[in-house]
Simulated assay, not measured.
Amino acid sequence: QFFSSSANLFNAFRTGAIDLAYQNLAVDQIRTLQEGATAQKWQAIAKAGSGIDYITINLKSPPLDKLEVRQAIAAMMDRPLLEERVFRGQIEPLYSLIPATLNMKDPVFQAYGDGNATKARELLTQAGYSETNPLKVEFWYRSNVVNDQWAALTLKALIKKRLGNLMQLDLKSIESTTAYKNLDKGVYPMFLLDWTPDFLDADNYIQPFMECSKGSVKTGCEAGSSFLQGSFYYSDRANQLIDQSRKELNPDIRKQIFKELQALLGQDVPFIPLWQSKDYLFAQKWIQGASLQITQKVPFWTLQK
């Protein structure tokens, strides 16, 4: 059964109308269901998920075409704060597009720190910004995703508290269906999005973001993955490495290729990884064999009433 809102799914499970509840529940709803599981009203199964949330940055949209600006924004992202204040421990901080569950990951964004106002101020000063000439940038999120709204509001408040007027986020929202249709049109300077892989390999966290099939350093990406993401990132080296990784059979060599790709990601900042999801499956007491796979699949063949 599919439900039109997380509230309907939540209520249907709590009243026993359905046997299992999975995905798209809000933070408070998950916390309430976890408390119910602790009180032995039902079962709760949690596992590190394969989905990630990140910011896509439009490199064609001034002032985000300046590297120092993108790096300063990366330095101000405070993942532990989001984990604690917004998600109440229901996510894991993410420092690369490749999640921590894969051995190819290299947490390159740890170099920027979390909410690192000192580094951000230094970078913005280099880029010519000051309290009297502040950085102003639009930050878009999906209006129908409650968690994204809270994350955006939290980051804006954090930046205001630690940088004063030096960096100013102008929050804007739009319904997700409309957003996805317009990403490749370049209308959004920064957008908070999520990604679920088609298969569990490092390639599926890098190629759909950094690959560009047509473009140049001067024009940016004109066709390909980064174009569709609304980033328009172009790198000859990234394209070469992605192509090489898809032909390489030696896992050790392949790991080095992805290490270099992640180094490019951290250096050029076309995307900013924020958090890795945790998956939660809730099952009624009369259900046996409920479990979650790392692929985010629920194996139905193990279930019994």
Rank of each mutant, 00 (worst) to 15 (best):
F227E: 05
K214D: 07
L193K: 11
F191L: 14
F209R: 06
L193D: 13
C221T: 06
S176K: 01
S173F: 10
Y188W: 03
S216C: 07
C212S: 02
L135E: 05
L158E: 11
E138S: 13
L169C: 08
V145E: 10
S173T: 11
I174S: 13
E138G: 12
L163K: 01
K136T: 15
I159F: 02
W195M: 04
M210E: 02
M210Q: 09
N204C: 07
D184S: 15
F232W: 02
Q240V: 13
Q207T: 14
T219K: 13
D170F: 07
K218M: 08
L183E: 06
Y180R: 12
V217G: 02
N204L: 01
L158N: 14
K136G: 11
Q207K: 15
G215M: 01
A179V: 15
L166Y: 02
D243V: 11
F209E: 00
Q207G: 04
R162D: 11
S226E: 07
L163E: 10
T177A: 12
L192D: 05
M190G: 03
T178R: 12
K214T: 12
M167T: 10
L193R: 12
Y233M: 01
E131R: 12
S173W: 05
F209A: 03
A202Q: 04
S173G: 15
E211W: 09
G224A: 11
Y141Q: 10
S231C: 06
G164F: 09
L192Q: 03
L183G: 00
R142W: 09
L169E: 08
L166I: 08
D243Y: 09
Y188C: 08
G220C: 08
S143H: 02
T196G: 11
N165G: 15
K160H: 08
L155D: 07
C221M: 07
F199H: 10
K214P: 00
E138M: 10
L163S: 14
